[in-house]
């Protein structure tokens, strides 16, 4: 494949890389001033806001997750808004967007046995993919603003470009609820497709004795689905931070890891989307 870039794109890429390297050096200098225990003491903490209403966990939110989600939604909507009136003969940018959508659509069309549910599944899968891929790349590879919290969930330090942006998919809340949503929607589709009786019967197949196994099997799907993405992205973010600390005298690995973060992010987004399609497909078949 021959990559042909115009002058503007090349300049943009070079500027991006230079900023990236500069931030890598800055990060290395910043981290070199801290001891390891100091640098990593809050690494597993999240900034938690306690709401004046609600009880227990229902009174607690992770503002950074929500705020970053809004940023990502805003970015997606801004990009998509430009293409709200697509042309019959697409230009290059529209063709690129169309090829992404077509890629997801083909996967959905190949997997979903019932034609009625192809379009709805495509809407869900494509939204999942766009949202997750952007949040993974943002959290895995792009230096930005992130907040360090103490064990009580209060803000302790704000990192300005010494860490990657916080990724919403590095928060189990996002992944778990998305996975549960996929699970529920797959069951709803299954009921609509097969009818309530056949759907209920499918839990007791091949023999009624298998019912508990089926329940465990089905319920483990959203758990594995969400934990896979969470582990990869949260772990990836930690690794970036760890690598940045370890390589404080050498910024290059951080830059490389950042680029790997893009690939890992895209692959994990793809895996989450493919699994969502597969779960819906298996519920329908």
């Amino acid at each position: 494949m021959k990559l042909s870039l115009d002058r503007k794109t090349k300049v943009l890429l070079v500027v991006f890389l230079l900023i990236y390297i500069f931030l890598g050096i800055l990060n290395a200098i910043y981290l070199s001033k801290q001891s390891m225990s100091e640098a990593f003491k809050n690494v597993a903490n999240r900034w938690v806001l306690k709401l004046p209403f609600g009880q227990g966990i229902f009174s607690r939110v992770n503002p950074l997750t929500i705020f970053m989600t809004w940023i990502i939604m805003f970015v997606i909507i801004i990009v998509v808004y430009r293409f709200r009136k697509p042309k019959l003969i697409p230009d290059r940018k529209q063709a690129a967007l169309e090829s992404v959508m077509d890629f997801v659509y083909q996967m959905v069309e190949d997997a979903i046995p019932d034609q009625r549910f192809v379009r709805p599944t495509f809407y869900i899968a494509c939204t999942l993919f766009l949202f997750i891929v952007l949040s993974n790349i943002l959290g895995g590879a792009i230096p930005g603003i992130s907040i360090e919290a103490n064990a009580q969930g209060n803000i302790e330090k704000i990192h300005l470009f010494s860490d990657t942006w916080f990724s919403p998919t590095a928060d189990i809340n996002t992944n778990a609820f998305l996975a549960v949503f996929v699970f529920l929607i797959s069951q709803v589709f299954a009921i609509k497709s097969k009818g309530l009786k056949a759907w209920a019967k499918s839990w007791f197949e091949p023999i009624p004795f298998m019912f508990p196994m089926n329940v465990i099997g089905e319920l483990s799907k959203p758990i594995s689905h969400s934990l896979r993405l969470f582990g990869n992205i949260a772990g990836g973010a930690l690794l970036t931070y760890l690598l940045a600390y370890m390589a404080k005298y050498l910024f290059l690995p951080v830059v490389l890891w950042g680029f790997f973060g893009i690939f890992v992010g895209v692959i994990q987004a793809l895996v989450f989307t493919v699994l969502a399609i597969a779960y819906i497909s298996s519920a329908l078949s």
Partner: peptide
């Protein structure tokens, strides 16, 4: 607080996802 803690965020995230789904 906890690295793996389910709280109200998830529900808000789900709402955000629905909004994004609708807008998209």
């Amino acid at each position: 607080m906890g690295f793996v803690e389910l709280n109200l965020t998830g529900i808000i995230q789900l709402l955000n996802f629905f909004i994004l789904l609708f807008v998209l």
